[in-house]
Every structure is written in C-alpha cells, then in structure tokens.
Computed example of a mutant assay.
Amino acid sequence: MKDTLTFDQLPDAVTKIQEKLDIIERLLIQRHEQLPEQDEIMPVSKAAIFLDLAVPTVYSKVCRKELPVNKRGKRLYFYRSELTEWIKSGRKKTADEIREEAVKHLATSSKKAKSF
C-alpha cells in the first residue's frame, strides 16, 4: 500500500497524473487513427443528405453514371468512402497550384527541347 501524500507532495503528484493522462490520450488518438474506418453503406435518402442534394438529383446523377453506386435488386446503395472520393475528385486547383505545375512543365519541356 502506498504512503499517503502530504500537502507538499500534491503538486508533483498532479503533474505526474497529468503526464500519464497525456500519454494515454496520445495512445488513444494513435489507436483511433490506426483502426480502419467502417465504410458506411447508405441508401439513396442518406446519400442525398450526405451530398446535400435532392433525392431526384441523386437518381439523375446515377442514371448519367456520374455517381459511384451499388445496386442490389431495385435498391441503390452508396459507400460513404466512394462518395467522399467523388467529392474530392471535383476539387479545383488554386492559382498557385496551377502556376507551380506550369513552371514544372516548362522546366521539363525546355530540358527536352535542349536535348534535340
């Protein structure tokens, strides 16, 4: 059994407890980041809410093959991860990103032109 803490020992004890809590918190965050996320399967109504679109709009995008979809019988299902990737694929580049790509392209094309 441990000795009872004195009033003078409390600050050190609280500091040690805080350090241990910080370590536990970091471990829990690392563990959470390492666990594979459960890929949620959503029906049309939930996918529409997730995408902030009307249900008819989701159906029309499916018909035009614009959205990744899974069909089972007459029902449509969507994976959250696939919808997230679809959203990300529509990302527009910033002016700086475009400028940087142009500079890289010009640098590589000028090297190729000099080799001829």
Rank of each mutant, 00 (worst) to 15 (best):
P36F: 10
P11N: 04
A13E: 06
Y59C: 05
Q38N: 10
D12F: 10
M42H: 02
A47D: 04
A48G: 07
Q18H: 13
Q34G: 04
T15R: 12
V58W: 09
R26Y: 02
E40Q: 14
L27V: 06
Q9N: 04
P43Y: 01
Q30C: 04
C63F: 00
K61Y: 12
E37S: 15
L53R: 13
K46F: 01
V14T: 05
P56C: 11
R26A: 06
K61Q: 09
F50G: 01
L28I: 09
P11T: 06
I49Y: 08
S45W: 02
T15P: 02
Q30G: 03
L5G: 01
S60D: 07
V58E: 08
S45L: 14
E25F: 07
I29S: 12
E40N: 13
Q18G: 10
K61H: 09
P11W: 03
C63L: 10
E66F: 01
D39H: 09
T4L: 02
H32N: 15
K61W: 08
Q18T: 14
D39C: 11
L21Y: 01
M42V: 08
L67C: 03
E19A: 14
L67D: 03
R26I: 05
T15K: 12
L10A: 08
K16H: 03
H32L: 15
A48R: 11
C63M: 09
D12H: 12
L21E: 03
D8P: 00
A47Q: 05
L67A: 03
M42D: 03
R26L: 09
R64H: 07
L10D: 01
L67G: 02
L10E: 06
R64W: 05
A54Q: 14
D3P: 13
I29M: 10
L5E: 02
L51I: 06
K16C: 04
E19P: 00
A13N: 03
V55T: 11
P11I: 07
F50S: 02
D39N: 13
L51M: 10
K65I: 08
A13R: 09
L27N: 06
L21M: 08
